[in-house]
Design a protein around this nucleic acid. Structure first.
Lengths: 92, 92
DNA sequence: AATATATTTGAACAGTTGAACAAATGAACA
DNA sequence: TGTTCATTTGTTCAACTGTTCAAATATATT
């Protein structure tokens, strides 16, 4: 996999409004799937499918707490990238 | 268009290896289509189609010089975003 | 004007992705 | 154990995307 392929794969994860909404919400802190479903107004199934992709891309991680699965941004690199993206993209 | 939709649309432009390669090359300076085609090893047509999307997304601009069309990153926000993305995504 | 080069455009096709639904799994609790 | 709730997984189908080829456009050169 070339650099461009790797980077493009990550951008693909962020190229969907539902998945990106999830990431933006996670900037505020961790959330369980049903919270994310409510806040994004997307079905639980759709959110879960999206989270799977995000997890495969290394963008989020999760922990179980009872019946709930709490997701959060994988690390500060993801957070920093999102914040930078927001800041700059507002001006594009 | 919501924030997430707008940001996702921009990420979509960067979510393709060919288009992202073009953007990464343009970090070094402006290029004509045939240069980009050679450097990315993609067909001229494919590169041109990609550039059209990038231009529609406000990520690149261009100028004509004779028969050649020179493309460059639209502004420093695009450049800064790409550099930040590279830096952080390398660690994801 | 005729030709060559650079780029753009449109159509078609193959491969990929997203949405919706149903079924399966994992955990809590009566 | 059986039930319920939260989440995940698999499947199907429609919609989207990237690539290629052929044709069109734009500019330069002779």
């Amino acid at each position: 996999m070339t650099d461009a392929e790797g980077l493009a794969a990550i951008f693909s994860c962020m190229a969907d409004p539902t998945r990106l909404s999830v990431l933006l919400i996670l900037l505020e802190g961790e959330r369980c799937v049903c919270d994310l479903s409510e806040e994004t107004e997307a079905s639980v199934s759709s959110v879960s499918h999206g989270l799977r992709l995000l997890r495969a891309g290394g963008l989020v991680s999760r922990r179980r707490e009872g019946r709930h699965m709490y997701y959060r941004l994988a690390d500060h690199h993801v957070e920093a990238l999102l914040r930078t993206a927001i800041e700059h993209l507002e001006h594009i």
